[in-house]
């Protein structure tokens, strides 16, 4: 989606190198935003409010991390809304069928949901690679299939999960933060491990950095792609579980809004849509930026109709600030 300029252009001009500045720009944006909202309204800085932000952000964070792997490869995955819905609904059905409480065999529904996500991602990857359909279209169509499948499974009904043990994801707090925040943190660590400590993670960057080069050096690019989409599916499923844990309801609409939200967050965090740049930490920062903006606007009392527009403006600003303008000639 963009072409990088000559290597010399990326060198620093003395002092703090621009490389460093660009790498930390998303975090700076996040800190500036938090400082701004804290100045406008001191209540923004309370632990209660931070917990609120993190609870809202956790499901989206999982989805955004999943799609980060795909974007690093230079592809895109738009199937998350469907995948999240299907995972949420199949988790709920299985959970209730097996007893309806985590204390019984119903805990099996948790790994099952992750498995369902993996299968959907796997199919998505196969369609993209084997039928040679660009990932944008393949995953978009798979998203329709997913949303449709969830609709068929539920018939449009909502399924309530009232098990206290499962809902402790939200209700049980350690150091003022509910369990689901820690679960999300655990998944971030797993994602970071996969990204930086496994061959698969390296291969994502190899594919995104230059696919022909990766292919030429003997990498089975197709396999890496399919595995990437499968992995993304697992993280979408994790997002689905947290989403159900947060509101206690699984339905077709559970997946709504995740698509644009997660991709915006990934880009705001500094991961480039053309692949090879960025990663899990960028996405964490990006998701926090988006949710801090959303929460901050409510806390300082902006009227509802202004909030969308301000979010749009701030997103554009955040991307402008975290883009290294000297090193790219154009973007698409």
């Amino acid at each position: 989606m963009a072409v990088t300029g000559s290597p010399e252009a990326q060198k620093s001009a003395g002092g703090i190198s621009r490389d460093v500045l660009v790498r930390w720009a998303p975090l700076l944006v996040l800190l500036v935003l938090m400082a701004f909202f804290a100045l406008m309204e001191p209540r923004f800085l309370t632990v209660r409010n931070f917990a609120r932000i993190l609870i809202a952000a956790s499901p989206a964070l999982m989805v955004a991390i999943g799609v980060t792997f795909i974007i690093i490869m230079g592809s895109i995955d738009l199937s998350m809304e469907g995948t999240v819905s299907v995972c949420a609904v199949s988790f709920a059905f299985c959970f209730i069928w097996l007893g309806g409480t985590l204390a019984s065999w119903a805990w099996l529904a948790l790994p099952l949901a992750l498995l369902v996500g993996a299968v959907l991602g796997f199919v998505n990857g196969l369609i993209h690679v084997k039928l040679k359909i660009p990932s944008f279209m393949a995953s978009l169509a798979m998203g329709f299939v997913g949303t449709g499948l969830a609709m068929v499974m539920t018939g449009g009904d909502r399924i309530r999960i009232e098990d206290e043990l499962f809902r402790s994801l939200l209700t049980e707090r350690i150091l003022n933060f509910p369990l689901m925040v820690y679960v999300a943190g655990l998944f971030v660590l797993i994602a970071w491990f996969i990204q930086s400590r496994t061959t698969l993670g390296r291969n994502f960057y190899a594919v995104g950095g230059g696919e022909e080069l990766a292919h030429g050096s003997g990498l089975n690019v197709d396999r890496v792609r399919v595995m990437g989409f499968t992995l993304a599916g697992v993280f979408f499923a994790a997002g689905a579980l947290l989403a159900v844990g947060r509101i206690g309801i699984a339905e077709t609409a559970t997946g709504n809004n995740f698509m644009f939200l997660s991709i915006t967050a990934v880009v705001v965090g500094g991961t480039a849509l053309w692949g090879g740049i960025g990663g899990v930490w960028n996405t964490l920062v990006g998701v926090l930026i988006v949710f801090v903006i959303g929460n901050g606007m409510v806390v300082i009392g902006l009227p509802g109709y202004v909030q969308d527009g301000v979010l749009g403006l701030l997103v554009i600003l955040a991307v402008i600030l975290s883009t290294d303008r000297k090193s790219i000639s154009f973007v698409k």
Partner: peptide, 17 residues
């Protein structure tokens, strides 16, 4: 240099406002 995916999405939010 904001990718059109994000630039147009954000402009859409502004229009929505």
């Amino acid at each position: 240099f904001v990718p059109s995916f994000v630039a147009t999405l954000a402009m859409g939010f502004i229009a929505l406002s």
